[in-house]
């Protein structure tokens, strides 16, 4: 068999599969976003920007996109806030069993999403762990309703689920800082906090940004947390898309909103990649 033939016969199945079951579907929702619906809600092929006009003119759509973005920023910020001490502790304070601890932070990533979300139902519910504990300890005398089925519980769940995604790149960034740089800072008279502020944090910033971006993007696309733990007023943009493809059955509009989410995500990823590149001063040759 000729080399080029061998090469393409190895690649062909994957390429065809991805084309048919991934690339074309993505292209299709782009096309579908220009379709129209008739008065019975049936999708009619066509070229119209009606869906985009509706998406931009109705605050339910454009407003929810921005609200979701704000939630996503909040989630990303909280994840970073939790990840920093965790990653710092493992990278700089722990001497033995580092690999074990690294495994411990990456393990929850792979454990079923639904179970991890469900756990918060037990913890935050009206008769759940937290409320019954608070009453048992006489801190409150009746259950706090706001804990579950609210934006609060949705955010808590997302932060919980996404923290490992953020902690891992931050930990990796911390580990990549040559120990001699930290020693040099101490040698020149800097205490732990100054060393963190002036050396560790700036050098780990690309890792922090990349972790934060993960959390941001994944929150933008999440529809399960609000569905499982959100209250009547908790609405994330993905839930709207899910509704437009489900009960509301307005596929062109659903596709248009989906494309808008994608564009926003590409924008975020682009900005993040650029700032990571700009801020990364740790090159392999400076070690």
């Amino acid at each position: 068999m000729k080399a080029w033939l061998r090469k393409y016969s190895l690649l062909l199945p994957l390429v065809v599969w991805l084309l048919v079951f991934l690339v074309l579907p993505y292209c299709f929702i782009f096309i579908q976003s220009f379709f129209e619906t008739d008065s019975f809600g049936k999708t009619i092929p066509g070229v119209s920007i009606d869906s985009y006009q509706r998406a931009f003119s109705n605050s339910l759509y454009i407003g929810t996109i921005f609200r979701t973005l704000i939630y996503a920023v909040l989630v990303a910020f909280l994840c970073i806030l939790l990840s920093l001490p965790l990653a710092y502790w493992i990278a700089f304070k722990v001497k033995r069993n580092k690999t074990l601890l690294y495994t411990l932070i990456s393990l929850p990533l792979w454990v079923s999403y639904i179970i991890r979300a469900y756990a918060w139902k037990i913890i935050l519910g009206k008769e759940g762990l937290l409320n019954t504990f608070l009453q048992w300890a006489h801190i409150t005398d009746k259950p706090v309703e706001y804990f579950l089925y609210s934006t609060f519980s949705t955010i808590v769940c997302l932060v919980y689920i996404l923290t490992p995604f953020v902690a891992i790149p931050i930990y990796t960034a911390f580990e990549q800082i040559p120990k001699s740089l930290i020693e040099a800072a101490k040698d020149l008279g800097a205490g732990s906090f100054t060393t963190f502020r002036k050396i560790i944090f700036p050098l780990a910033l690309p890792g922090i940004i990349s972790g934060g971006t993960f959390a941001l993007v994944l929150t933008m696309g999440d529809f399960l947390s609000p569905l499982l733990l959100g209250g009547p007023n908790t609405l994330f943009i993905s839930n709207i898309v899910q509704n437009l493809f489900g009960t509301s059955n307005d596929r062109p509009l659903g596709s248009a909103v989906g494309i808008l989410i994608l564009l926003l995500i590409f924008l975020i990823l682009g900005i993040a990649a650029r700032s990571e590149k700009k801020l990364s001063s740790l090159k392999s040759d400076s070690r």
């Binding site: 740089l181 040099a184 050098l203 740790l282 070690r287």
Partner: peptide
């Protein structure tokens, strides 16, 4: 040994 200059 490897200078440990702060790259940032």
């Amino acid at each position: 040994q490897n200078y440990a200059l702060f790259p940032n």
